[in-house]
Design a protein around this nucleic acid. Structure first.
Lengths: 348, 348
DNA sequence: GTCCGTATTGTTAGCGCTCACAAAACCTTC
DNA sequence: GAAGGTTTTGTGAGCGCTAACAATACGGAC
């Protein structure tokens, strides 16, 4: 039964352990830090004392002298969305595995001031590195401009060279989805886009447009959305006005689901009349009515990759003139098309 | 333009600011901590020096001497689910508002060892309080047993007296949903339950059973689920075997959606043949096919409440013999039934 | 036995901050 | 103008730890 406190009644400190083990505090420190030059027998005694007192090193004291906090920061704009929350989880797991703590800073707004505030907050906390999730263009730009006193990576989109990071090739994913629809025989594909200032939204829209252009198909105007099912629903109601619409590619699954709802309400059948494809492959996608064809992303994996990259930069800062080329933007993951019942050959 | 570094090339410290302002380091400290006994003019000089040097106090040093880390911990079992991720967000926002940092510890497993490990991790980080999200019975029991060296609250379910916390009255929500279905004329209501060891799942199942008993209706066996759409789907496939099933109350929306899918696939119409009700009101619920009747929870609000409660306990520890009665379990929020098209009078 | 090189342990000095107290500055008031 | 109070400011110590160095102990070669 550990005693948890010294005679003095306070949390035990290193000196208490040292006294109990009959060594100097420095030897205790050596044991704690895995120094090789400690006699096995001494180590045992120290460990026993540590256990007996239920001693735990004071992280603040250690951080003060080593100047390392063992903490990483995560900046996120909407942990509430499926993707970001998944990535956060992946990051957290990976960080823990590496012995780091995670501090989060969610932003409500994404203007430069909020972004800087968040970075400052994290710097105050003395984080050793920062991972940025789910990036808005405006915020990313602000971050990239920041005099980087601390290593940063992005997790999620492959960004346009501002910061290193682990990302999915959203453009390729979108292309694949659109090409698939065209291969099914659709004349063209309509698009419900994500918010303009999200990198992911931009990339997916670009992929959609490029795929149409490559196949020399007309490029209809894309409809705006905000990732929510509600916005998808609204977009869907606008799409039904045009009887020539036979295929819709949505920038995420939630909007796709809204589009399906709108089509259904107005008597258009999915997929007989209109094919709908989403993006993300949320766990529900397979169980919607109809099951949703979509582009799968491995968010958790992404979080893990991003964190690994960050750790590498934290542990070996400045491999060479950081920020430029080379291993700059690793881990570009290719997403995968999952075909389900919401898409089919047109014109039945 | 701040200089960010002293002549010595390192991060500026308090002494640098003091020197520049022509005061002692202690006066700088006073300014930083808002001590009233500083002449306005002196304060100005100090603030100017702080700004000029872009000085930021070292949290580790401060934490070392004050023994306060300005950090709160969050233990969560599945930040990946809708509810928990919402609550996490609410907690983070509230914490930031109060000037606290948040460190998260997600658990993959919920056995006592993992739980203790997480608490230890957070204690190592010197958190001043811990909020526990989305509670599994087993884990909660382990937590309650823990010699509480640090204030803890639960966020989510109203727990059976182990820990204080902010929670939704899940049982009442379930009752309301079931009573509503019975009022619609259904003879009884079937139930797809959440995992047995979640408090929320237990409470919702209890509410369901009680409501049936109150109305002297037969209580069918509940079907097991794990919160996922997939598990709902499987449960749905089992339900269709019984032609007498006309109403299903699911412990969350994702499972409800799976049930709907299964019913649809096997030719049963919702709501004409079977009514389905969920729980949570995820943002997609209104846009599913058919739109889902459900019980709305305000997760974000809940997180905020929980954190406030935690802060109160952190700031005024031990109001009186903590852990017992009184203001023990505040903030029991009543959820709200949202009626949509997935439920209707039976037997058409 | 003496000497040297190596393994092991101890000693000292901070890390940057706040706390407790001492000193100085500033008012009053008589 | 001196005594007594109230600000306002400065000084010294120390939070618990690690880094650098000093001091032992130990083993074998001569």
């Amino acid at each position: 039964m550990p005693e948890a406190r010294t005679a003095s009644g306070a949390q035990p400190v290193m000196a208490d352990v040292a006294a109990l083990a009959g060594v100097s505090h420095q030897t205790v420190s050596r044991v704690l830090n895995g120094s090789p030059n400690v006699r096995a027998q001494t180590r045992e005694r120290v460990l026993a004392a540590i256990q007996k007192l239920d001693y735990r090193p004071n992280t603040a004291a250690r951080a003060l002298v080593t100047r390392r906090s063992q903490t990483l920061g995560v900046i996120s704009f909407d942990t509430t969305l499926y993707g970001p929350s998944q990535m956060l989880y992946g990051i957290e797991q990976a960080a823990r595995g590496a012995g780091y703590f995670i501090t989060i800073a969610s932003l409500r707004n994404h203007d430069a001031r909020s972004v800087h505030e968040a970075v400052d907050r994290l710097r105050d906390q003395a984080v050793e590195g920062i991972a940025v999730i789910a990036s808005r263009v405006s915020a990313m730009a602000a971050l990239a401009r920041q005099t980087a006193t601390v290593p940063m990576v992005t997790v999620g989109p492959t960004d346009p060279g501002w910061l290193p990071g682990a990302g999915v090739d959203n453009e390729a994913g979108a292309r694949t989805a659109v090409r698939y629809l065209l291969d099914q025989g659709h004349g063209t594909v309509h698009h419900v886009a994500g918010p303009d200032d999200w990198l992911e939204a931009k990339a997916r829209r670009t992929g959609w447009r490029r795929a149409l252009e490559d196949h020399e198909r007309p490029v209809p105007e894309s409809l705006p959305g905000d990732w929510s099912a509600r916005s998808g629903y609204r977009a869907g109601l606008r799409l039904v006005d045009d009887p020539r619409v036979t295929a819709v590619f949505c920038a995420n699954d939630h909007m796709a689901l809204g589009v399906v709802r709108a089509l259904h309400e107005t008597g258009r059948r999915v997929p007989e009349d209109v094919s709908v494809v989403g993006f993300d492959d949320i766990p529900e996608a397979a169980f919607l009515t109809p099951p949703l064809t979509t582009v799968r992303q491995h968010f958790g994996e992404l979080g893990r990759c991003g964190l690994e990259l960050l750790l590498r930069r934290v542990q070996f800062p400045d491999p060479q003139a950081a920020g430029v080329d080379g291993a700059h933007q690793v881990a570009v993951v290719a997403p995968e098309l999952i075909v389900r019942a919401s898409s089919a050959r047109p014109g039945r």
